[in-house]
Simulated assay, not measured.
Amino acid sequence: MKKVLLTSLLFLFITLSFSQGYQSTKYGVRAGVNISNLDFDPAPIDRNLHRNGFYFGGFAEFSISESLWLNTELQWSAEGAKDEQWKANYLKLPVQLKFVVGQNLSIGIGPEIGLKTWQSSDNFDNFIYSGVGGIQYTLFEDYFIEARAVYGFNDMLDSNIVGPGLEAQQFTIQVGVGIKI
């Protein structure tokens, strides 16, 4: 049920972004570092659960009003844990509502869906559903720095492979830079 609800919300945001007559549209690229963590239940012993990786992607922002924007992205992200058995990379589609709260400051929140593009083992499901929230500060007219937190809503592990009883949810922090073209 969660998957259906999150997918429906994602398509609603995308549909709204293309159905409205926006005052302004901005495009750009962003990249940075990930610090991802797998939270296992029950917790495994003797594992380094953090993985430092990177992300990069492109985005389009659509103006809804002067202080509200719809941000859609397509990004690639290296995630999982440091242990070779628990590494995975994803192609992700985050969709955020961004609120301008100051002259150079904005915050965003929304859903994210990810498709597994590579894994070190067959432990992972093909799709992940997450929530993303972040803050962005514009340094110059088109350059910005950002920080985000991404929390996975579903169990990332394929229960047919790892067996019942072991579940993992992912939490990722992203810190990076971007430019609006």
Rank of each mutant, 00 (worst) to 15 (best):
L105M: 10
V150K: 14
Q119N: 09
G152F: 08
L91M: 11
V100N: 07
V101D: 04
D125I: 00
D83R: 09
P111E: 05
F127R: 04
N123W: 11
G108D: 06
G152A: 08
E146T: 04
I128N: 15
G134H: 04
I145Y: 02
G131F: 11
M156I: 09
K92E: 15
V150M: 10
T138E: 14
L93T: 09
K92D: 10
D122V: 04
P111Y: 06
W118V: 08
D155L: 06
W86T: 13
K98D: 07
K92N: 13
G131T: 10
G133F: 15
E79I: 07
S77H: 04
G110S: 02
Y151V: 13
A78S: 15
F140Q: 11
F140A: 14
E141T: 09
D125M: 11
D122G: 14
G114L: 12
W86R: 04
W118H: 14
N104P: 05
D122E: 14
F144T: 04
G133L: 14
I128F: 12
E84F: 13
I135A: 12
A78V: 14
Q85D: 15
W86M: 09
W86K: 04
S106D: 11
N126K: 11
G102E: 09
A149Y: 15
K116R: 10
V132W: 03
L91N: 00
F153P: 02
L139M: 11
G131D: 02
F124K: 02
A81V: 03
Q136P: 01
A81T: 01
K82F: 11
F144K: 03
G133M: 15
T138H: 13
G152P: 03
D83S: 13
G152S: 09
N154V: 06
D158S: 08
A147G: 15
N89C: 08
Q103I: 00
W118D: 14
F124G: 00
K98F: 01
D155V: 02
G102C: 00
Y143E: 10
V100M: 08
L157E: 05
Q103S: 07
W118N: 12
D142W: 10
T138N: 11
L93V: 13
G133A: 14
I107N: 00
D155E: 06
K82S: 12
I109P: 01
L105R: 00
G134Y: 06
K82W: 08
S77F: 11
F124S: 01
F140H: 12
V132Q: 12
N126A: 10
Y90C: 04
E146F: 15
N154L: 04
F99M: 08
F153D: 01
A88G: 03
K92V: 13
G80Y: 04
N104R: 15
M156Y: 14
V101L: 14
F140C: 07
P94R: 06
G134V: 06
K116I: 08
L97P: 01
K98S: 13
G131A: 13
D155R: 02
Q85N: 13
I145T: 00
G108N: 03
S106V: 02
K92T: 12
F140P: 01
E146I: 04
A149R: 09
S77T: 10
L139K: 01
N104S: 15
F124P: 00
V100P: 01
S106A: 10
Y90I: 05
T117L: 15
N154F: 06
A88H: 12
Y151N: 06
G152M: 08
Q119V: 01
S130R: 07
V101C: 11
S130M: 07
